[in-house]
Write a protein that binds this DNA or RNA. Structure first.
Lengths: 101, 101
DNA sequence: TCTTCATATGATGTATACTTCATTTGACGA
DNA sequence: TCGTCAAATGAAGTATACATCATATGAAGA
């Protein structure tokens, strides 16, 4: 998969696990793969696959610390993004469920 | 598909056609299904399917005008959302292509 | 009420991406 | 340099959502 445009960014966000990981990093701060895997109950290799895509889109950054790779969200983009969606959900999502029609 | 939470919103945005439609409506203003179908070269029924999901997430609104149904974006959410992503792409997407590694 | 236009719906094949497993890489300490 | 831990990679089966077709609905005018 190439990441060449606007739409690709949403494609990468269009996956619950990746969004959960981003939210987790947003709330808990920088974390290694094992931590993410344990806390969110996602397989280690699945987390790795997720992190790769998130990295490619610059939604997260990574730094090596010993054997671990510590991931942190790109706050410039992700914080306001989550805030925007949070407001939207708050406005339209009633009783834990979007209502329509 | 149910739309019960935060992640579902990204799932609906995670599709190029739906994003293209949103961008089109953002730039060109309210439009009917036929217009969208013709301009973006997407089948009529595909557009309809897209609009249904976009409606369910309140990314667009609709009003009947005669036989037509005119769709317009939810500006409160979509304008700032697009602006946010635009800045992100501008920052990290070099020469029409995200670079990494 | 019949016809036509605009759009929506439902079903099904097909494409896409996710999950999982096995394996590899890379760093650290003994 | 060997063993171990942390994470990444690749491949393959499986699940998911998309594209398309045929059909239905609903409004407007003749």
């Amino acid at each position: 998969m190439m990441y060449t445009s606007f739409d690709d960014f949403f494609t990468v966000l269009g996956n619950n696990q990746r969004v959960k990981i981003l939210q987790f990093l947003n709330q808990e701060g920088p974390k290694g793969v094992s931590d993410i895997s344990t806390k969110l109950k996602i397989e280690q290799s699945a987390v790795s696959h997720c992190m790769k895509k998130l990295l490619q889109c610059h939604f997260v950054e990574v730094k090596r610390v010993g054997k671990e790779r510590i991931y942190s969200i790109n706050e410039d983009t992700m914080k306001p993004l989550f805030e925007l969606i949070r407001k939207h959900v708050e406005k339209y999502c009633v009783n834990g469920c979007v209502h329509w029609e």
